[in-house]
Every structure is written in structure tokens, then in C-alpha cells.
Amino acid sequence: MNVFRLTGDLSHLVAIILLLLKIWKTRSCAGISGKSQVMFALVFTTRYLDLFTNFISPYNSVMKVIYLGCSYATVYMIYMKFKASYDGNHDTFRAEFLIIPVGGLAFLVNHEFTPLEILWTFSIYLESVAILPQLFMITKTGEAETITTHYLFALGLYRALYLINWIWRYYFEGFFDLIAIVAGCVQTILYCDFFYLYITKVLHGKKLSLPA
């Protein structure tokens, strides 16, 4: 474990908790893409299937349980509890256009052709594009609540920190996983224009609004 991976995990945890609190406190999921949240729940489900069979450390197991629990709680709140506030008209990104190609790619490009490995690979590829419906929704609505931008910033930052973690691990442990690295680069690149808007607008106290 190195400081980049630890801060990356904490940034990820902050993002997930931030979103959960935003929906719970405001009792509304306006501006949140349910499709992205469903895909994140799918990412954690397919990635943490070894939760009970492959113990790595208390930290690892606790974080997996938290991620799984929070992502399902978020999906539940969006589609059940606060369904009335779900903005389906703007959450129109065709998720199947992501899930099907990612599923096919996981079959073709993986480290080992076994169910667990293919599902893990699927979760890595899916995570890299899972935020697209959310970013697409923001372009449709033309704006985002400030708390939502903080959520997105923390979420984008987590994988950027993981990229540094992989550089660190390559130099000090000789470890690298090309699938995770390439997908992590794609994932972080997708946030670049959001990062630009976040830093130039939100951090200057402005609301994030796109030229409609």
C-alpha cells in the first residue's frame, strides 16, 4: 500500500459518501444519473465477487463492503425512495451502448479466460466509462449542483491517484497491470474537461453551468 493508493481509496470513499449524503439530506436525486450509479453498482458487484473467497486484509474487505453497500443504497434511493425526484428525461444516455461493447471486450482482452477474471476485466472496463451518462446528463441540463461537482471531482481524482500509484508500484515493486492502467487512463481523461470547469468555475465560487 502506498500513499497514492490510500488517498485514492479515500477520495473514492469521500465521493461515494458525498453522493449518498447529498441524496439523503436533500431527499432528492435531481441532476444525478441513475444509469451511472447502476453501472457503478455493477462494477463493484463484478469486481468483488472474491470478497468471501479471497481475503487480502481487513482494510480491503471493509472497503469492499462499504463500496457495495453504498452503491446499492444509492441506486435504491434513486429508483425507489426518491424516485419522484429522478430526472429521467435528462438521463438518456444509452447505457447498453457501453455495457455490451465493454462485455465483448472483456471476453477478448483479458489476462486469463476464466469467469472470475473476465468479470474482473469487465468491471475494470465498465468503470472507465460508467461516468459518461452522468457527464452527458450535465451537458443536457447545462448545469450541476455544487455538491454534485464535488462528488465528481473526488471520483475523478481517485483514479488519477491510482495512475500515480501504478507508476509507484512499477518502479518500487516491478508490478503493473496494463488492463487496469489503460482503462484508468481512459477513465481519467474523460474527466479532463470537467476538471477544467471545476477548477476554473467551482473553485472560484461560481456555479458550474455549461454554455447551453
Partner: peptide, 10 residues
């Protein structure tokens, strides 16, 4: 057995 290196990450 030792988990494949990448699988110790979240």
C-alpha cells in the same frame, strides 16, 4: 495462494 498482484487493489 498469493492473489494475483493486481487483485490486492480495490
Amino acid at each position: 495462494e498469493e492473489p494475483a498482484a493486481g487483485k490486492d487493489e480495490l
